[in-house]
Nucleic acid binder design. Structure first.
Lengths: 298, 298
DNA sequence: AACAGCGTTGCCGAGGAGGCAACAGTGTAT
DNA sequence: ATACACTGTTGCCTCCTCGGCAACGCTGTT
């Protein structure tokens, strides 16, 4: 659980606009100190949405007004009003029976047009092939701020996870995908992003500071893939490689992860496979986009 | 292009909060008439997001502040400020070079936790099989208000569409998926949803009024699948069947659509296949959810 | 019946929304 | 090089929405 500038809860879940949860007294003090608060109500509404995207809420199948209000630290009246307008617009759905709110389909509709659709559609088949080759689950991720956002998961059909990693943030410093995404960053850039003091370590093997991180990234650069063993979670190993756009900039990472006892021995092979998959994806992005074709629907 | 209550543009694209585009004078008059305007800034922000989700904007690869302001009918200063906060939160991305805004990954992250993830993950393989069997593209849709929202597309790899149907709304009355979703509605419910007067027809074959619709739905009920020929677009035929939850309620629809010259002759066979796929999906949803399993990520 | 908890609504002061206009950058025509 | 058109940002100031408080209606429990 690292907290970044402005005190947002960053990892383990979606972003929560941090200081909104402060009691009114402290909050207004904070506000007076740092200029003015911009788009207050809008940010609160986003806070509600993000709270509804929390694992526990999703798992519980929704959340009531009061609960949401306390979660986001605002008055229940405001929560009620904001949720009503969001429901009107379709961004939240309300269960007719339990009167609890869930994220609505409109969010889904928006998402289908967000981000880089070319990347997503090109990545699907690549991940499938990779998973078939190695037999472990694979992810596509991008860098968002200082965190890694997972966009796509593909797993050997061994189990369907109820709440997938898709849409979640993970620390960039101690994950294979994060290292791959940072492959082109030098020590200076890393220091600017993560600060130069010592970091709280997720496990004993996690990098402790910038030098530590830079060193491991150098190794990854040499190998062509990043390799992480039990740095974010004990017993877990992973490899990842960067995907580049036509201009050569790193835009995404492909990884493979599994328990050490299953993948440990084949880690080098997995690394090569992941690098090859990332190269495939890079090649796919390098080509001009396929002709626009409006697919029929009736 | 049907306009529903409160004058929102409903079909052909994402919802746009209609009257915000009015000039200030008229708007304030309207507002004074109908109580107070709730969550004004928030709705404006949503308007911006939805504008960014417009086909033309997505196809153009983003949109500038000025253009967005005129699109949503607000002052560019406000647009600039709202976009800035949205960029902070990750809901929009700004191209560093062109300075144009696009929908950000945070929207994607939220969406990954919205809707019924069980439905989506179960539907993927079913659609793939269906597409492989018939060789035409297939969609999964749900009912949202009086419109059909497409959640998933699977097409034979013949072409990758740049902007897919996913996330778009289509009229329920003249699409196969819509009919399938309305399969359990009787004439009274249909009248309540769509009104009893005559409707504007998309094509010559579209249903004209409730009786017309109810009759076609009865036929679909008898056949086990809905069949639509050139009702939403000339030259296009489609079949669809309803997916039910454990309680037997219709929650989604699976369809197949293609140009008449490719699918016309096999339409009955396609209907049976679609019904079978929908039944498979229904069966999958009937089973208790697979044990929650947190998939590892590193 | 009394109670506890949830969600909605009215009220009203304070602070953010948002229109206007000046300003700063950038690419294009003169 | 100058002027121009256009873009996006920022300051200012009014007005209206925000949002805290509290009362209310409702439902389920003790």
């Amino acid at each position: 659980m690292a907290t970044s500038r402005r005190g947002k809860l960053q990892f383990g879940n979606l972003l929560l606009n941090g200081h909104l949860a402060l009691p009114p007294a402290q909050r207004s003090a904070t506000v007076r100190a740092m200029a003015v608060e911009r788009s207050r109500s809008f940010r609160r509404a986003l806070g509600l949405l993000e709270a509804l995207g929390t694992d526990d809420v999703v798992a519980a199948g929704g959340c009531g007004v009061n609960e949401l209000a306390t979660l986001t630290g605002m008055d229940k009246s405001q929560a009620s009003r904001l949720l009503a307008t969001m429901a009107d617009a379709g961004y939240v759905d309300r269960d007719a029976r339990t009167r609890r709110y869930r994220l609505g389909w409109q969010v889904f509709a928006l998402a289908a047009r967000s981000g880089d659709q070319r990347l997503l559609s090109a990545a699907g088949p690549v991940l499938v092939r990779l998973v078939r080759e190695i037999g472990e689950s694979s992810h596509l991720s991008v860098l968002r701020g200082t965190a890694v956002l997972t966009l796509l998961t593909e797993s050997p059909s061994r189990a369907v996870q109820a709440v997938s990693w898709v849409g979640r943030l993970a620390p960039a410093t101690s994950t294979s995908s994060g290292r791959a995404l940072l492959l082109d960053h030098d020590r200076g850039q890393l220091a600017a992003m993560f600060g130069s003091e010592r970091w709280p370590a997720a496990t004993a093997k996690s990098p402790r500071d910038v030098d530590d991180l830079a060193e491991r990234i150098t190794l990854a650069r040499a190998a062509g893939y990043a390799r992480v063993e039990e740095e974010s979670e004990p017993g877990l190993v992973a490899v990842a490689a960067p995907v580049r756009d036509a201009a050569g900039r790193i835009v995404a990472a492909v990884n493979l992860s599994a328990p050490r006892f299953r993948l440990g021995r084949r880690l080098a092979r997995a690394g090569v496979a992941v690098a090859a998959a990332a190269a495939d994806l890079t090649a796919a992005l390098g080509r001009p986009a396929p002709a626009m074709m409006e697919e029929a629907f009736a």
